[in-house]
């Protein structure tokens, strides 16, 4: 009797298997994301009380924290996918990293915008060269550079190699964005909003809708990366077919 081979994660490096998996996973994550974001934001906007110090601006947290979290996590996912590409040369991982770029960039933009609009009434300024704000701005510029580099290089494997290196370099700023407030312990931005450490202050009236919104943003990221990766796989196949047509004359 031959033993049944154990299923492996690497099977999904095969584009056909990835397409088959994402066929059912994409609609599921998309609908769950829509539901979680709708519940989290409606709950946060309509049903949470004003903060005694920050007034109604506290409601911005349900957009700001999930988008900032996904801005950093998107880069972390790109880093893992880039390392898989560099080490094991799986094309799907390089294409998944490429698909995550615009999603992470938009999440960073939302985090920067909501931070500025929240900061104005609370700090009296839209912007300050605070460690966390500055590292987030640099992270956003890295995202733009990453997207531009993918578009600028004709050969897909060379593009994947160079963007993977850029991703590794940019990871320094992704880490700084997450821990800047702790490293420097100065600037306007507060420390982590959510923490498992004792003595954290956020009430469950805010924490519950925030967790729902964070789940929604995470699922939205997953859905958009799955959709983007499917598009990149098709675009790669299209390019191969066009090249074959050209060679046949």
């Amino acid at each position: 009797m031959t033993p049944t081979p154990r299923p492996s994660l690497w099977e999904y490096a095969n584009p056909v298997k990835f397409m088959r998996l994402s066929d059912w996973l994409l609609p599921l994550t998309a609908w769950l994301a829509a539901a979680a974001i709708a519940v989290g934001l409606v709950w946060g906007f309509f049903l949470t009380p004003d903060d005694f110090r920050q007034g109604s601006t506290v409601k911005i947290i349900f957009l700001h924290v999930p988008s900032a979290l996904m801005a950093i996590n998107a880069w972390a996912m790109m880093l893992v996918a880039s390392l898989v590409w560099l080490i094991r040369r799986h094309h799907v991982s390089a294409l998944a990293a490429r698909a995550a770029g615009p999603v992470g960039a938009m999440m960073t933009l939302i985090a920067l915008f909501t931070g500025a609009i929240w900061g104005q009434p609370m700090w009296g300024t839209w912007w300050a060269w605070d460690p966390r704000l500055t590292s987030f701005l640099i992270l956003f510029l890295f995202y733009l550079g990453y997207i531009a580099l993918w578009s600028a290089i004709e050969d897909p494997d060379t593009a994947a190699d160079l963007t993977a290196v850029l991703c590794i370099v940019g990871s320094v700023f992704a880490v700084l964005s997450r821990y800047a407030a702790i490293f420097w312990n100065q600037g306007l931005h507060q420390g982590a909003s959510l923490s498992v450490a004792p003595g954290t202050r956020m009430d469950w009236a805010y924490k519950a809708p925030l967790y729902v919104s964070m789940t929604g943003f995470g699922l939205l990221f997953l859905a958009l990366v799955l959709a983007g990766t499917r598009t990149e796989i098709r675009a790669r196949r299209m390019k191969a077919l066009i090249n074959r047509e050209r060679m046949q004359g």
């Binding site: 974001i37 934001l41 906007f45 309509f46 004003d50 007034g55 109604s56 601006t57 409601k59 911005i60 957009l63 700001h64 988008s67 615009p102 999603v103 938009m106 933009l109 939302i110 915008f113 909501t114 609009i117 929240w118 104005q120 009434p121 939205l220 958009l224």
Partner: peptide, 24 residues
Amino acid sequence: PDLGRYAVEVTLAYAVSLALLATL
């Protein structure tokens, strides 16, 4: 909800963020 004196900031944050998400 009554957003008090920060109504413009909170509404703008939600409107622009949702517009950006919809664009994406």
